[in-house]
Design a binder for these strands. Structure first.
Lengths: 111, 111
DNA sequence: AACCGTTATATACAGGAATACATAACGCGC
DNA sequence: GCGCGTTATGTATTCCTGTATATAACGGTT
């Protein structure tokens, strides 16, 4: 019937920096090697995906995604090791919260 | 610099049922005894607040807020014991997640 | 019956976010 | 130098959510 959901994200100066959306996008970039393909797969406009990548790269010490235009296959997108590490940490945190909520599943009957 | 934030809520059939907004509204109703005053305090339109209360009352076994119109003071709003209990549970859950995040605060340096 | 402050309800309006669209730029291979 | 597929960037448009506005209904007090 009813169920509990949650969302967690990283903010900087009150602006959203990293959350579920970016997390999924970067994952898809990693497997596809293309920003446009990654965006298309999750029904996100290319513009939004591009803006998102800029935000990640510009508001962090290390870059997350390297974009290359032109060349043999027209270009492509590559995920840095730093991004891989960060994704792992985010996934781990999400999992911890998920486990906490599963423990608290009884309380939902009240609602 | 960067910090982690979260949000948790109760859903029914994919529709939001109870979250931070309703939680604050019901709290203010409890102290004010008036729906319009509670809405005004948190810069929420009366219509939105009223719709919200209807949703709580109609999609739950027990009512959350009893609204009375007319009478000595024009009417008023009263929070039921069931709502009080539910608010406590929600606050408790939020607190548990907050504590979990505090333990994980180190990981944020990666971002 | 008139007054009062609140709840009840519909409609019109505005703002902002997401999207769609269009076009340019790039660099390798042929 | 042309074609290709991708990235790069601005502009227009749509859509949706919330807000503003207006009006009615209610019931106790006087």
């Amino acid at each position: 019937m009813k169920n509990i959901r949650f969302k967690c994200w990283v903010e900087e100066e009150g602006q959203k920096f990293y959350g579920p959306g970016p997390n999924e996008l970067v994952k898809r970039i990693q497997t596809e090697g293309s920003l446009s393909k990654a965006a298309g797969q999750m029904n996100m406009s290319y513009k939004k995906a591009w803006d998102l990548v800029q935000r990640l790269n510009n508001h962090s010490e290390k870059p997350w995604v390297i974009l290359r235009k032109g060349g043999q296959h027209g270009g492509g997108a590559e995920v840095t090791p730093h991004a891989v590490k960060a994704m792992q940490e985010y996934d781990s945190l999400q999992q911890k919260i998920r486990e906490l909520l599963e423990q608290q599943e009884d309380m939902i009957r009240i609602f």
